[in-house]
Design a protein around this nucleic acid. Sequence first.
DNA 1: CATGAATGAGCTTTCATTCAT
DNA 2: CATGAATGAAAGCTCATTCAT
Lengths: 207, 207, 207, 207
Amino acid sequence: MKSQASVSVPKKRRLSPEQRRQAILKAGMDVFAAQGFAASKLDSVADQAGVAKGTIYLHFKDKQDLFEQIILEAIGPILTRLDSVAQLPDMPTDILLAKVFQHFRTHVLETNKKDIIRLVMTEGPRFPAIATFYHREVISKFKALLSAIVKRGIERGENIDPALEQYPHLIVAPLLMSVIWDGLFADIDPLNVAGMLEAHQKLLIQG
Amino acid sequence: MKSQASVSVPKKRRLSPEQRRQAILKAGMDVFAAQGFAASKLDSVADQAGVAKGTIYLHFKDKQDLFEQIILEAIGPILTRLDSVAQLPDMPTDILLAKVFQHFRTHVLETNKKDIIRLVMTEGPRFPAIATFYHREVISKFKALLSAIVKRGIERGENIDPALEQYPHLIVAPLLMSVIWDGLFADIDPLNVAGMLEAHQKLLIQG
Amino acid sequence: MKSQASVSVPKKRRLSPEQRRQAILKAGMDVFAAQGFAASKLDSVADQAGVAKGTIYLHFKDKQDLFEQIILEAIGPILTRLDSVAQLPDMPTDILLAKVFQHFRTHVLETNKKDIIRLVMTEGPRFPAIATFYHREVISKFKALLSAIVKRGIERGENIDPALEQYPHLIVAPLLMSVIWDGLFADIDPLNVAGMLEAHQKLLIQG
Amino acid sequence: MKSQASVSVPKKRRLSPEQRRQAILKAGMDVFAAQGFAASKLDSVADQAGVAKGTIYLHFKDKQDLFEQIILEAIGPILTRLDSVAQLPDMPTDILLAKVFQHFRTHVLETNKKDIIRLVMTEGPRFPAIATFYHREVISKFKALLSAIVKRGIERGENIDPALEQYPHLIVAPLLMSVIWDGLFADIDPLNVAGMLEAHQKLLIQG
DNA sequence: CATGAATGAGCTTTCATTCAT
DNA sequence: CATGAATGAAAGCTCATTCAT
């Protein structure tokens, strides 16, 4: 239909504004994840996004706004992921946890979502708004989800330490550990995450 | 008028060079821990140390060198602490771990040593030398210590998952979690570390 | 739903090109008067004119051209005003001057024409073309007009200092003063322009 | 005493901090007077002052602060000048005014103090603090001085329009006019200020 | 050794101008 | 003609580093 008109190759304006915005968010994500907020240069972001530096300011108020938007927008998929876990059909807790860990490895640790976690950890202390937001949107929900899983398991008569309902942190801690370890020691002392999480899961639910 | 009186009064030089160096290290530690490496200003460090900015360069090559020295010097006490744990007399593993956790809470979490851990975590990816050094000096030793504790326990016939010898990370993960949590959510959702670690210890050694 | 109705409704193009040009000139006048040339943003002009920023460049070569056009176009009405004064029927000089001052108060000081004067004063040093143009089109004519008025009065036998023919500046000076004063001290020390000009007129023509 | 040591010519640090500050103020004065606040670049100021750009920020908070300090510091000498006029011995008003005008021509119009007046006029509307300050420190005092001169003259029985006591603006207006004229039309239509002021003085005090 | 004023490269941000639509 | 997203040169400001004292 449009094929005839498309003969002339469009030089600029290859991307829609929203695509450009996404390109900037993506580039910013990479740069911030690699350098941290303060050490990142908007020049790098612009270069990597393939836009001029000024273009960033058409979409974001300033550097900090860009950073916050990156975190905010990245959280959506994480929530979706959480939901998909929450809606898993009823099954033994150990299998459920194995699935959660599997999800984490596949969709967080092996994607750039781990960078979000790392960024929240490293920059959160300087961006309380982000820490608060992340806690409200992700952490509290994840905590609730894990507590619920534990509670159901206990009600089902499984041999689970009831303290885990109060401290779901213990379930997540090794996940965090794997993210941090990966960022620091991947080269010098790599961690077999799958193996560790399997062991972890057995510790959590014994019998 | 004043000239006569000040013949031999030592106005400046209230501190020895080494004291000055320590003051800078201490101040740098505080500033870097609070702001991160890139966002920290040597002005702040100098102010807080009570020295002139130029003085920093008499003791350290540049900003990065100061940062690395801070980490290096801070690691000594941690090692001492590890040693003291390693030399604890033989006792049941659960009690031993309880002591380790107790040590951690008292001498890390409630002191500025947690800032070292945080700094290594947040800046390590940008300072491979630090990550490597920290791994060699602290992590590997801590891993060995925990593995040894587990091994002894198993040999002693205690009911301990042998996988823990391979993955001592699982023992430490909640400690890391508490450091991170404290930095991010202390205000909005404080964590009862003592309670969590008690639960953790029971999970590790059941029976 | 809306598509059917909008067959022939002229959505855009509510204004003719010339109307658009005028809107830009008007908006530019306001913005430049309020901010000065350098501090004015074409964004503000476009916003206030209700056009897109790029549209300005369809009508004006660049920012400086817009500025100069504003001054140029604004001078027309001033000249008309001068003419209307020049064509006043013969009458005693004091009454004539009173009329000139009255004109000034009504048609300059209480309209945005005072902004033109202010702009010429403040930006003139950086835009010699404007200063020259303004002098040729306005100042020299005004000077001639005032000199002629004075000359006629003297010929008519009125008691007027002949030096005023050579220095008509003295007649205008308080008008300038009122424009400047109004821009600076209107709030903190307002000036009764009518009273001042009345006194001024009496000083000029005594008898 | 130090003569021996002074053999080696000091490369840098030729100026004391205060001298440097003054150099920046002076350079800023020139640049701001020539370009206006918004169009002035701190690079130009630094170049002209013979310092690095960063040095400006050791002495002034930001560009606006520099500007305000320039005005503030320049006002001191003006006040001194006013005082010296106020303390002139009693003499006929026409002679007194002639002296005031003479002062103005010599110490304002022919020095860079006229630039201060111009800057206050042109930038005052955007820097209310400056307008207010200038009014309080200079204008109000000058007004009071002129009113007092007029009053004394009247009391002395001289033939002076009493309205001048209320509108000393009329005495100053031609001075302002000369500053503005000089800035705009010096090249194309120079003004004989001395002649004009002489005529002005005669108009003010007749008989 | 210690000082802190000075430096200037480098960063964030702005905004006149362009151009694909 | 009109639009407004995109551009990128240029400006203000910062801060690690230097160096005369």
